[in-house]
Design a protein around this nucleic acid. Sequence first.
DNA 1: CTTTGTGCAAATTCTTTGCACCAAA
DNA 2: TTTGGTGCAAAGAATTTGCACAAAG
Lengths: 135, 135
Amino acid sequence: MLEAHQYLRQFSIKPSVQRSAVMNFLLNNRIHPTIDEIYMALSPNMPTLSKTTVYNTLDLFVEKGAVRPLVIDEKNARYDVDISAHAHFMCKSCGAVHDIFNVNPSYFTLPQSDKFNINAVEISYSGICNVCKGN
Amino acid sequence: MLEAHQYLRQFSIKPSVQRSAVMNFLLNNRIHPTIDEIYMALSPNMPTLSKTTVYNTLDLFVEKGAVRPLVIDEKNARYDVDISAHAHFMCKSCGAVHDIFNVNPSYFTLPQSDKFNINAVEISYSGICNVCKGN
DNA sequence: CTTTGTGCAAATTCTTTGCACCAAA
DNA sequence: TTTGGTGCAAAGAATTTGCACAAAG
């Protein structure tokens, strides 16, 4: 937990018990969790935790640049504590989201445009994972 | 409308008045509309149209490969009738989604993986458009 | 007729909001 | 104390579902 505590300070986020717990979960569970997954994972050990706090906390983390919101799952918001340039894969069957690191870094270059001020890119792959495919 | 009618047949979609109207709208309004935008645009001329039908219709179009669902807007599902490989830009201020065609075609290459069966890719850019920026 | 499509209303799910209470400085 | 954080309950928004009626073949 101390680790998460320190980590938050790097992003100028005041640590609280709840914030540290959420960050700790994100740092140790690189599953790009949904709000509900975070809430479900933490509430057994923090019975008073509310989902509103998880929403507030993730909004703050995104605002401070400590996590990035993923746009890959139409159903739920998902968050990644790894803010380095990398892509993601989502299995259309089980819904799991995985990191894809072997993507040419040049793909993350932002294109020039005279109509838009482009400042972020997201590369999302989808298909079926081997677990769902049955091997 | 005849155009849309024919277009649907190419994808083995039985045309109905509603389906043709939706496809016609998509073909002539390349704005990557949401369900609500489609519904709002058509309902004045089709008072009995229901939003459920718009949902059903778009689901069918996606299933038949006539349109592709965009994963770029966390708030609403958006659809693109142009199924060729190209990227999109979404303005975080006004929410408008635009096509980005000047992206290196190689970026759309699907990476190989022994863990996943990757069969689709989406490249999404975001930022602020010039209209919102004030010039 | 029989199948397929449409549309209303209700239900569900995810997210946001308002407000009171708690905690830290 | 004063500010900021938390949590409950209610509200809101997008989507899905169940079912009855309409349309097409």
